[in-house]
Amino acid sequence: MSGLEDLIQAFGFPFMQRAAAAGTMIAVMCALLGVFVVQRRLSFLGDGLAHAAFGGMGIGAFVIVSSGALAQGGALLRNPLWIAVPFALLTGLGIAWVRDRTELSSDTAIGVFFAVSVALGVLFFSRISPDANIGVNVMDLLFGSILAVRTTELAIIAAVAVVATTLLLTLWGRLAYATFDDELARTDGVRSRALEYLLFGLAAVVIAVSATVVGIILMAAYLVIPAAAARIWARSMASMTLLAVVIGVSTTLAGVALSYLFDLPTGSAIILTQALVFVAAAFTQRR
């Protein structure tokens, strides 16, 4: 079959290898995070933090252009992610803080930060002259561009993936316990409040680097669907986690391949593949 040959040949291209590597790392950390996001009913957090990343990218791009950093400095330094990631992190911790200190539901807190971030992003992107080549394209930001991942981004993704995956796996038992019952976990010495800040902070960083690849608009779905499908099939938190990672990685790689073969937007291809798995899960649900 020529399709298969095409595919094998395709993964010989460096850009496809970068896409596969970035996709796998993002899929693993998003799935590990996603199980907690789903169980804690924080789906909207994915949306809010992805849009915070958008705001951060806008500020970052503006700073790079207006400071003239575009002309000098290495490619790694010129990346607006250096501003987007801390900006998203502050937003994530801000949401956690509002949740902690007020009676507001997280939806409300997230909604406020969401709107402010988008407003900031639009404002700063509008200040950048259209012919300044900053290496980020607003459309790519919104809809994702995994096939356009550059080596610098890959390096940032790898660094975040190592830290996030290590933390999520190390703290898995305590995070799961606090997710099951916050108060019961606290009676067993689990510092669930600190864990919540950590979870929100991690989510912010993971989502900021993932969103540039998956697309801001699709980010929340990407975070939630593998975990949700896994939840339908799983009988334990451990199997849910494992299954979410398997679904996340396989649908991401399948989406990359499909988008190459049929010239589809990658973000759409990934999300639609995940949706198929989710529908399959819903139909085969054990009662």
Partner: peptide, 25 residues
């Protein structure tokens, strides 16, 4: 007050009493 949608079995909850964190296995 535990999360009723959390996939948990009786034995897992009892094991939290032994190790003070949620058991993966």
């Amino acid at each position: 007050t535990f999360d009723r949608t959390f996939p948990a079995t009786a034995v897992e909850l009892v094991v939290t009493g032994l190790r003070r964190s949620w058991p993966a296995r």
